[in-house]
Design a protein around this nucleic acid. Structure first.
Length: 425
RNA sequence: GGAGAGGUGCCGGAGCCUGGUUGAACGGGCCUGACUCGAAAUCAGGAGUACCCGCAAGGGUACCGGGGGUUCGAAUCCCUCCCUCUCCGCCA
């Protein structure tokens, strides 16, 4: 959520953000709603002041007639306050709705356009040249008995799966590798709940309900399955005031991630690439406003470090304005080479890191106080993928397959999984 | 799941029976000043959060787990929800 108080003075920037994101929002309605709430707030305060004075005056002996008049006036003031408060509550609700419709600002370097207009920042490694027809991860998985999609569908439904054999150990190894990398970078590790209350989910800018929601709700409890540990890590800061000296905070969260993938049918969705559940190690950072851009670079560098350790070729892209989620000020994705994508291989998203500036933090009430200062300021929040197991697995298997059908395990991963190749028979 | 006890400011802890001058005693911690070469101890002050008005000084409003009710007036009375603790049962 943007700061409603500064909407009017930053009107142009907000309008620009809406235009570039192709978001239709009633900006002037939001500005008007803010002015209306501010006015009504003053009115309620003033009415309360009068009422309080009247109440204080009632604390003394009075004769019957005087008491009766006093009580009558007290009732009248009470009704007046109630009426104005109701008006204020309605105005505040309208303001909240209007404000929630407004997306975050956009970093000046974010490219224009939509999904296909991301700017490629750089590449690492080259797509492998196979001297044999390479298999996609589904075929490799079948060959080596690594997945069971059929049973996943039977037991839990489509887009659920079982990992088997080496794939299970690879999941554990990937989680462990990523955990070690971020721990060495100063992150505090958390294993978080896999569920969260709807208001927390919403506070992070995810829509917990409705047709388009990516979020599963639990039928007999007021809870959602988390789509990412960003939700549970961010929830840690609900209504918190941090000290400047504590910042920046670097948290790493291991969780399962659940996504309905509503509306994604027909998209590239073979095998493990787009599934309803996967395991992820997520990075989450809280910074002073002036530090968030640098932290964003740091998160990207860590993501690259992980994929370099996995010896997977990748490229880094700067997501275009029209493809940015509402909370994101800027977003970098790493896309790894995947031979199974398209006709002859293609880039597939494996990590994503966003600088959400104060957009999530304001809604959560996450603030900090400068050393020696008195006022609180809203912190900045960022998130990034240390490892998303399902997609990393796709990239890993497809890039490291060998002519004899076996799959090599990159050196950095071997100590974690305990084998240096996958080979059957 | 059963029984009981609680949720008050940075912390501890009064107040609730007997509603008003209690934004909240008292103690600890914290900050400022005095004393000191410094420190400790002592003494004197000051510190909540949010929003609104104001250049500022300052002023106003709300908040004693959340929501609702009674009352001219609620931290105090009533209802409801949530949470914590202790004991019992159950279980990985």
């Amino acid at each position: 959520m943007l700061d409603p108080r500064t909407l009017a003075e930053r009107r142009d920037a907000v309008a620009e953000s809406c235009r570039r994101r192709h978001v239709r929002a009633d900006l002037d309605g939001a500005i008007a709603a803010y002015e209306r709430t501010a006015r009504l707030r003053g009115l309620v305060d003033e009415t309360n002041r009068v009422r309080n004075e009247h109440q204080k005056a009632g604390n003394r002996k009075m004769d019957a007639a005087e008491r009766e008049a006093h009580v009558a006036e007290g009732r009248r003031l009470k009704d007046e306050v109630a009426a104005r408060e109701a008006e204020l509550a309605a105005a505040e609700a309208a303001l909240r709705d209007a404000a929630l419709g407004l997306p975050n600002f956009i970093h000046p370097e974010v490219p224009d356009g939509g999904e296909d207009d991301a700017r490629e920042l750089h590449r690492h490694g080259e797509p492998p040249q196979f001297a044999f027809p390479p298999l996609d991860h589904l075929a490799l998985g079948e060959k080596h008995d690594l997945f069971d999609f059929e049973s996943g569908t039977k037991v839990a439904g489509p887009k659920f799966y079982y990992l088997k054999n080496e794939a299970v150990l690879l999941e554990l190894a990937l989680v462990r590798l990523a955990s070690d990398v971020i721990r060495s970078r100063g992150f505090t590790l958390y294993a978080t709940p896999d569920v969260a209350k709807p208001e927390i989910v919403a506070g992070l800018g995810f829509n917990p309900r409705g047709e388009e929601t990516q979020i599963y709700s639990i039928a007999n409890a007021d809870l959602c399955l988390v789509g990412t540990a960003e939700i549970t890590l961010g929830g840690l800061f609900l209504d918190r005031v941090l000290e400047e000296a504590e910042l920046p905070l670097r948290l790493g969260g291991i969780s399962h991630c659940f996504r309905t993938e509503a509306g994604s049918y027909g998209r590239e969705s073979k095998g493990l690439y787009r599934v309803h559940q996967f395991t992820k190690v997520e990075m989450f950072c809280v910074t002073r406003p002036e530090d968030s851009d640098a932290m964003h670079d740091e998160l990207l560098a860590i993501e690259e470090q992980v994929f370099q350790a996995l010896e997977v070729p990748y490229r880094v892209i700067d997501i275009a304005a029209g493809d940015l989620g509402a909370p994101a000020y800027r977003k970098f994705d790493i896309e790894a080479w995947m031979v199974g994508r398209g006709e002859s291989g293609g880039w597939g998203e494996v990590t994503s890191t966003s600088n959400c500036t104060d957009y999530q933090a304001r809604r959560l009430g996450a603030r900090f106080r400068r050393t020696g200062g008195k006022k609180t300021e809203t912190v900045h929040m960022l998130n990034g993928t240390a490892i998303a197991v399902s997609r990393a697995l796709v990239a890993l298997l497809e890039n490291h397959q060998r002519a004899d059908g076996s799959i090599a395990i990159p050196k950095a991963l071997q100590p974690y999984c305990g084998f240096d190749e996958i080979r059957r028979g």
